[in-house]
Each structure stands twice: as structure tokens, then as C-alpha cells.
Simulated assay, not measured.
Amino acid sequence: MGMSVTIDTATGEDAEQILKLQYLCYQPEAELYGDYTIEPLTQTLADLRAEVADTCVLVARLGAEVVGSVRGRVDDDGTANIGRLIVHPRMQRHGLGGRLLAAIEARLAAERDAARYRLFTGHRSAGNLRLYRRLGYAPVGVEEVSRHLSLVTLEKDVPASLAASA
């Protein structure tokens, strides 16, 4: 039984599983902020397929099942924007989110010359904020989106060891 989780590049064939997992994982966020119109819950399969073709998207697999995913793209100034870090609820609290984040960071530094990483989360998303801080991210700004939601932007520089290997 003891299958291990592998992390690999997503393909267009993974898009449907990613979208279903994304929908599942963002329900608690929508409930927390009282907003079920957030973009992760309204994204279409066609949009996600285009994103998979266009950006760096990684998936975590347990056998054939996608149990986690993360996306990133690097701007012209070397900033890697990382988003949509999701892990199936039954797989949470086992380090998979950290593994996915480390994998996308390494990939974006090595293949796309990232100089710094940036991500954001809602101000009430305590678990996300704890994870990101533990992994070296520091808050650099807060943007009020609505009365109920402020987005906290966090960043960290690419470690010299990763930048040197790029």
C-alpha cells in the first residue's frame, strides 16, 4: 500500500483534476471571507488548461491522483509570482505544501532566472501565513481588497545556492 507522493510538471491532462482539487481546497477560504466568487472558484477548465500550457505548474501525485499543485511565473524583473498552492485536505499537515513550494522555487530559479519569490494570501488565512513565514517569506505589503479581505504579500530572495546553479 505504501505509495509515496511524487512531484512533477503538470500536463494538460492534469487540468481537470487540478481544477476539482482547487475547488475543494478553496472552499474554506471562501467561507472564511464570505465570498464564493473568488477567482479560484470561478476559473474555467479552458482557462486552467491555458495556464498549464503557459506557466510553470507542478502537481503532487499519489499514484494517478493529483493531491496537490502550485503555479508560478517569472516577471521581466526576476520576480517569481507563486500562487494556487493547494493540497488535498486529507494530505495536509504532512509537509506536502512545503515540498511543493520548494519544488516550484527551485524550478523557477533554475529554469526561469528568478531572483526573488512573491506570493500572497488573505489576512485571516493564519495557516498559510504560518507556513510562508516558516519557509522564509516576510510580509512586504497589505492591500485592502474589500471590507472583509486584505491580501498580505510576502517575499523572499532566491538563496545564493539556487541562484548560482541557475
Rank of each mutant, 00 (worst) to 15 (best):
L32M: 15
E144S: 12
Y117K: 01
E51L: 14
L154F: 06
H148N: 14
P89H: 07
R130Q: 12
A164C: 07
T9C: 06
L131C: 01
R73I: 04
L108Y: 06
L154Y: 04
Y26I: 05
L96T: 03
A80D: 09
R147M: 11
S4V: 12
G2Q: 14
G141C: 09
A110W: 09
G122V: 04
I7E: 05
V142P: 00
R116I: 04
R134I: 00
V66H: 09
L129Y: 02
E16L: 08
T121G: 07
G34W: 05
A50V: 08
T37W: 06
P28H: 00
A15M: 04
A164F: 09
M91C: 13
E155N: 09
R71A: 03
V59H: 02
E29N: 09
K156S: 02
E29H: 14
A163L: 13
R99W: 12
A102D: 12
R84G: 07
Y36K: 10
T79V: 13
G136N: 10
L45Q: 08
A138C: 08
T79M: 07
S165V: 13
I38A: 07
Y33C: 10
G2Y: 11
D76F: 13
R112P: 00
A163Q: 09
M1L: 10
D35C: 01
V142A: 14
R99Q: 15
A30K: 03
E39W: 02
D14F: 08
R107P: 00
R124D: 08
L48I: 10
H94S: 10
G122M: 11
G2T: 15
V140C: 15
L135Q: 15
R73A: 11
A109P: 01
A138L: 13
Y132K: 07
V74E: 00
E13L: 10
H88T: 05
L101P: 02
H94C: 06
Q22T: 14
G12K: 09
R73P: 03
F120Y: 13
P159G: 05
A15Q: 01
A109C: 12
R107G: 01
L32T: 05
M91I: 04
C56T: 14
C25P: 06
L154V: 11
A64G: 12
N81P: 00
T44W: 07
L32H: 06
V87L: 06
R90A: 10
Q17M: 09
L32G: 05
S165G: 11
L131T: 03
G98P: 01
L135S: 02
Y26H: 06
V74L: 03
E16N: 11
Y23P: 00
Y117V: 04
E65T: 14
V70D: 00
V66R: 02
L85T: 03
S150A: 15
L101Q: 08
M3L: 13
M1E: 11
E31G: 05
T6M: 11
